[in-house]
Nucleic acid binder design. Sequence first.
DNA 1: ATAGGTTGTCGAAGCGCTTCGACAGGGACT
DNA 2: AGTCCCTGTCGAAGCGCTTCGACAACCTAT
Lengths: 337, 337
Amino acid sequence: MVTLAEVAQHAGVSASTVSYVLSGKRSISTTTRQRVEESIRELGYHPNAGARALASSRSNIIALMIPLRTDMYVPVMMEIAIAVATTARTHGYDVLLLTGEEGPDAVRRVTGSGLADAMILMDVELDDERLPFLRGTDQPSVLIGLPADTSGLTCVDLDFRATGALCVEHLAKLGHRDIAVIGEAPAVYERHTGFAERTLDGLRSRAQELGVRLLHRPCDGGYDAMAVTLARVLDERPSTTGFVVQNEQAVEPLLALLRQQGRAIPEDVSVVAICPEQVAVQASVRLTSVAIPAQEMGRHALERLVAKLEGSGEDEVVLIEPELTVRASTGPAPSAP
Amino acid sequence: MVTLAEVAQHAGVSASTVSYVLSGKRSISTTTRQRVEESIRELGYHPNAGARALASSRSNIIALMIPLRTDMYVPVMMEIAIAVATTARTHGYDVLLLTGEEGPDAVRRVTGSGLADAMILMDVELDDERLPFLRGTDQPSVLIGLPADTSGLTCVDLDFRATGALCVEHLAKLGHRDIAVIGEAPAVYERHTGFAERTLDGLRSRAQELGVRLLHRPCDGGYDAMAVTLARVLDERPSTTGFVVQNEQAVEPLLALLRQQGRAIPEDVSVVAICPEQVAVQASVRLTSVAIPAQEMGRHALERLVAKLEGSGEDEVVLIEPELTVRASTGPAPSAP
DNA sequence: ATAGGTTGTCGAAGCGCTTCGACAGGGACT
DNA sequence: AGTCCCTGTCGAAGCGCTTCGACAACCTAT
C-alpha cells in the first residue's frame, strides 16, 4: 500500500504539500504540483479512505435506503438507485446501500458511526418512523417521496396530485364521463404511502371539477387479481369507458382482459397509465401515459443532497411536473348508442 | 460525538478495555463488561467507522458492482442486490453500490483506497475486462456469473447448461420434436454474456442427444420485436410445437401473439420459461418454468465472500442446480393430423 | 529602502480506534 | 513457600490522512 508519505518523499516535498495538491485547498506552484502528480501516477497511489474519513470527518459516502418490499414496482426503484449512484460518482461520492429492513436503526447506526455523510430515503410513508431520527440529527438527508409533515425536510417526488389531475383531464376532454381507477396493491394504501393517496386526491378533485364520475379500486398485480377487480368494476359501473392504471403489474392484464371481453382499445375504452416510459411503449398497445421519471428523481435527490453538504441547500419540497404523452390507448369516448 | 475514550472514562476503565469489550478479542470479566456496556448504552456510543477502518485496516464494507444496462431483466438484479445487502448485514458488513459504468477503474479505486474489504461483481462477461484487476489484487472477490476462464476466481451462478437441458428434456418427454428458443436480446449475445451462451449450449447438446430439432432466435423485449421474431420462426419451422423463452420481457408478448394466432396453450403449443418465479406465476398462463433463484445467488455469493474474508474460503465455482416446475403452459405435443 | 501583503511550503498535532507487550493478581501446581 | 501460568487490565504506539499556524521568499507600494 502506497501512502501519502511515500509519495511526498518520492516527490521531494512534505506530506502536507501532497495533501494540498490532492485537495486543492491551498495554492501550489505549478512545478510542484506537476512533480507530485507525476509521483502519484508513478507509484499508483490511492488515498486511504479510512484515514481520510478520520482526519476530515467526511467519508464521501452517501447512504441510500431502498425498500425491500415486493409490492412496489421494482424497476423504478432500481433506476432511481442507479441514477443516484452514477450521479454521486460525478460529485465524488460513493453510495452505501441500506435496505429498509433495518428501519430507523440503520439511520442511527449510519449517522452515529460517521459511515456516511448524508442519506437518501426511498419509499417514504406518510408517517414514517425514520423521520424523527432524521430530524434529530444534523446530517443532511433527502427523501424521495412525501411524508405527511415535510417541515424541516427536503423531499423530491413526482407531483402525483397533478399527475392524477392530468389523467382525468385528458380523458374528460375526450368525452369520457365514467372513469375507473385501477390502483396500486391494497397493501400500498394500507401502509399510507403518500404517492398513491396524492394521485387519488388529484384524480378525485379534478373529476369533481369536471363533473366526471370516478370509481377507484386498489388491485394486486397479475391476471387473477385484475380479472376479479375488472369484473367488479364493470359490474358496478357498466358505463365505464375510461381507465386510469397506476400499477405496472396490472397494466398488461388489464389490456388483455379488456380485449378478451371484446372491448377495443381505444375505440371502446381508453386507458391511461401512470408508469415508466418503458412499460408504456413495450405494452401490447402503446399506452397514453404519464411517465414516472425515475432517473430524474434520483438525480435531483442526489443533487439537492450535495448542495446541502456544501452548505448551500435549503430545505425544500421539489415536485417534478408530470407530463402526459398521448399514444395509442386513448381516443374519443364512444357516443351513446 | 461520543468517543471510545469518553465511554472508557464513564465506565472507569481504559480505552483498550472498551475496545476489547467491543471486539471480544480478549477476555473481559463479566462485571467490567457489563459496566462498559452500560456506559455505551447510556452515552449512546457508536464506534467511528473511519477510525476503525484506519486502525484495523478493515472497513467492513463489501462492494457490489451492478450493471447499469437496461437490456437485462432488472428485477433479478435488484433481488440479488437486496439479498446481498441483507445477508451482508447479518455478517456485520455494509454494501457499497458501484455501477458498471466505471468498469475496471472502480475495481482499482475501491481496492486501492481500502474503501471495501472485498467485492462482488455481477453481469460478468466471458472475457470480462475487470478480471485482470481482480486477479492482480489479493482482495477477495466473488463473481455472479461465469467468465470463460474461472481459474483463480470464485463464481456463483445458476447452472444454465443444466437449465437448458432440463427444458429440452421436459418438452421432448411430452413428445415435442420441434422446439423454438426465444432468447435474450441480441446485444446480450454480442457482448458474450456467459449465461445466455451456456443455456444455449445445454439446450443444443440435449436436443441433439434426444433427436429434437432446435431453432434459436435472440429477441428484444416488447411486442413488436416478438411479433417479428415469432413470424419468422413459424415461417421457417411451421411444425414448431414447443417454445423455450429466456427473456422475461418477451414472455407475455409471446403468449399474447400465440393466442392471437389461434394457437392454444398448452393444447397446440407448449411454452417453458426461464425466468423468476414471480414472472411465471403472474403471467396470463401459469408458466412451466425453470426459476432464476436470484435471492439464493446473492446470498450464496455473499457467504462465499465472507468465508474468504475469514480465511476459510477456497476458490471454487458454485453452480446452483436448476429446478423445473410444471405449471399450465406445457402439455403433450398435438399428435400429427 | 522599508513596511505590508502574497504565495508556497513545511512541521506537528491530532482525528478515534486497534493492538501489542507488559504486568498485577490469583489459582494450581510442585 | 515458591514457581508457573492464567486471566483481566492498562499504556502507548501507530494507522494515513487533514489542517492549522508558522515562516521564508518574493512582490508591491510607499
